[in-house]
Design a protein around this nucleic acid. Sequence first.
DNA 1: AGCAAACTGTAAAGAATACGAAAATCCTGC
DNA 2: GCAGGATTTTCGTATTCTTTACAGTTTGCT
Lengths: 225, 225
Amino acid sequence: MHVLLVDDDTALSEMLTEYLAAEGIRTTAAFNGPDGAAQALSGQFDVVILDVMLPGMDGNEVLRHIRRSSEIPVIMLTAKGGDVDRVVGLEMGADDYIAKPYFPRELVARLRAVTRRQRDVAPAAALKVAQLELSPGKREVSWAGKVFELTTSEFDMLESLMRAGEMVSSKEELSLKVLGRPREIYDRSVDVHVSNLRKKLAAASGGEVEIETIRGVGYRLRLHA
Amino acid sequence: MHVLLVDDDTALSEMLTEYLAAEGIRTTAAFNGPDGAAQALSGQFDVVILDVMLPGMDGNEVLRHIRRSSEIPVIMLTAKGGDVDRVVGLEMGADDYIAKPYFPRELVARLRAVTRRQRDVAPAAALKVAQLELSPGKREVSWAGKVFELTTSEFDMLESLMRAGEMVSSKEELSLKVLGRPREIYDRSVDVHVSNLRKKLAAASGGEVEIETIRGVGYRLRLHA
DNA sequence: AGCAAACTGTAAAGAATACGAAAATCCTGC
DNA sequence: GCAGGATTTTCGTATTCTTTACAGTTTGCT
């Protein structure tokens, strides 16, 4: 097992690396967000341990970046015991979180749990709903084989909705996953992106896919005009 | 097995040589970067152990140099427990790293692991996309058989993009692989190299290959003007 | 039914950000 | 110390994101 540790605390990283080595776990460290994100996507790691507090790029940002093109398991390290951070992280696709300070053996247990879970999961592939195809790696969407353009946010939003399948995605969830921040009151960004995405989807699919509004709750992707 | 050890610490080198000899492993030492790089490319070694901290030429530099024309397995020795060096090194093509101080038997285990792994790997071949051909070994690019010139960075960048195929390469990724360092905020180097590479590609291929920008994400190679 | 409050859709304006290109500066090897 | 390449800076532009505003809907309540 090869673990990527993204944390700016070098002393702690060293300690942890040693501990994990004793457990037969190989660890590589990254000390800032961008670096960590890039490494996480390199394909050489089995799991990522990610500190929420990072200099430069916030941990949730990093997670968002990773999730754009990878399903690699991520465990979040959160400093404050009962913070929103953990919720944010889990919503955005972290597989687990652990609050600092923690027992290393606890972390090892979770590492094992998360990677065991992972083995039963199919590799990240292109998403397909009816004739709508979305490839996270290629960053390309197409209807009936015909590629069409979306902005970054629209792409991420469509990906989120497609992954959700028939489940309704709340606006809060979408804000976290797509925009990487909790939704504030009177925040209409999600609505606007949905509105714009709808136009493009309608144009591309001739109305065969649409985004359904569940009033007071959120949105969901639907077939048939 | 014949190992090349590139490390300026002569005392340590001697010790290690003895230990490895006891394990039936033959060792040759080089005490500086340029010498080490040259030796590594001589073709008589099965694996290279490379210290990141070297007088004169930095270990990552040496690695980069080696990787330009060889796939020989390289294990990096990193002094500082949790340095970015190791990250950069792995991204640039090191096969493993080990932190000093280390147990010789640990090193032996990794040597064996790395060389075992190596046997299953196919030799690096020339890359070809449409009429665009790139030979990592020869360090030569051509369009429709006609060779054209690129700077080191441009060559490495094109190679990275070609290997990525249809997948989008993020700027972070490209910075690590091409420039050998993590990308910093407001760092426009990757953009600039892409810009220059575009000009040369357009001139050589008459606009048939181009580098597509995926806004907010990165770049990808594309065919057809 | 009538009404108020809450929610949604979307256009348009404003703010923020990313990109490309050009030029200046820094390096490095010869 | 020269020359070419690499990196940094700067700046203008285009795109994208957010906010604001307002009209239309739905819901809940009396």
